[in-house]
């Protein structure tokens, strides 16, 4: 079977649309709500959903996602429960689902067993923010064997590294919009034309910009530079505010971003 991420970007390209990737932390406030939020986000226009696996010490996250992780870990959300969650989601959606998680969670679970389970429950890719390109051997063999994509990241500081990373990327390339950690920002000042110039020189996989995108207008601006945008903290802020009642407001927010992206 073709990887869902690849198929998704091909479809979007054919339709002349940009990808909307949205994020939610698993188990915040509980896994039943996460399940509803994921389906609602797909329903309201997300093309790809990233499910955050909570970690005790998320060094790449700002306050919003740190707090979501803590809320989730308070009732001991674990990776096996998240595999079960995705398995249930697969009864209702065939869109790409990714996990966003820290390397220790993969490593401690057993990297081979982790990727096998991803394949079994049909998780399409994994984003690991504390695994730089140079340490990709931690997962590469298993990722290739199972077809579960390891999504690599590029940052504003990457410069001459961009091409090297793009050359081995599959699925999509995660472009970190700004220095620092996740969290909404008023302004994103990175020079994307310069940063992403190397991507124009070859036939690389699609690229999406994430970190700090807080509304439809910003999403539109970012997507103009590449193939799509990723929104996390803005959604988690809504979940923080409304808890178990966040399904509807998250849906409204996702719909508003979709509309802006398609305008």
């Amino acid at each position: 079977m073709k990887n869902r991420i690849d198929a998704c970007f091909e479809d979007l390209k054919a339709q002349g649309k940009k990808a909307l990737v949205t994020f939610v932390t698993a188990g915040d406030p509980d896994l039943a709500t996460t399940e509803k939020i994921v389906l609602e986000m797909f329903d309201k226009g997300s093309d790809i959903v990233e499910i955050g696996v909570p970690f005790s010490d998320p060094i790449a996250e700002g306050g919003t996602i740190q707090r979501a992780s803590l809320r989730s870990l308070k009732h001991n959300t674990n990776l096996d429960q998240i595999f079960e969650l995705v398995s249930r989601l697969r009864d209702n959606t065939d869109k790409p689902i990714l996990l966003m998680m820290y390397l220790n969670t993969v490593f401690r679970y057993g990297t081979e067993k982790f990727f096998d389970n991803c394949k079994n429950v049909q998780i399409d890719g994994v984003i690991i923010p504390d695994m730089p390109f140079e340490e990709r051997d931690e997962v590469k063999e298993y990722s290739e064997k199972t077809g579960v994509r390891a999504i690599y990241l590029v940052a504003p500081t990457s410069k001459e590294r961009v091409k090297m990373i793009a050359e081995e990327s599959k699925g999509f390339l995660y472009i970190v919009s700004s220095l620092g950690v996740t969290g909404t920002r008023k302004e994103i000042s990175t020079n994307f034309n310069e940063l992403l110039a190397p991507l124009k020189e070859g036939n690389y996989c699609p690229a999406c910009i994430g970190f700090g995108i807080s509304n439809g207008e910003q999403a539109r601006k970012m997507a103009d530079y590449c193939d799509g945008c990723i929104i996390g903290s803005a959604i988690v802020n809504i979940v923080e505010k409304y808890g178990a009642d966040s399904v509807e407001p998250v849906g409204e927010f996702v719909a508003s971003v979709r509309e802006a992206l398609d305008a």
Partner: peptide, 12 residues
């Protein structure tokens, strides 16, 4: 050992 850090700090 190794270098398990976010891409943002790799250059530094």
């Amino acid at each position: 050992g190794g270098q398990y850090i976010p891409e943002t700090v790799m250059t530094a």
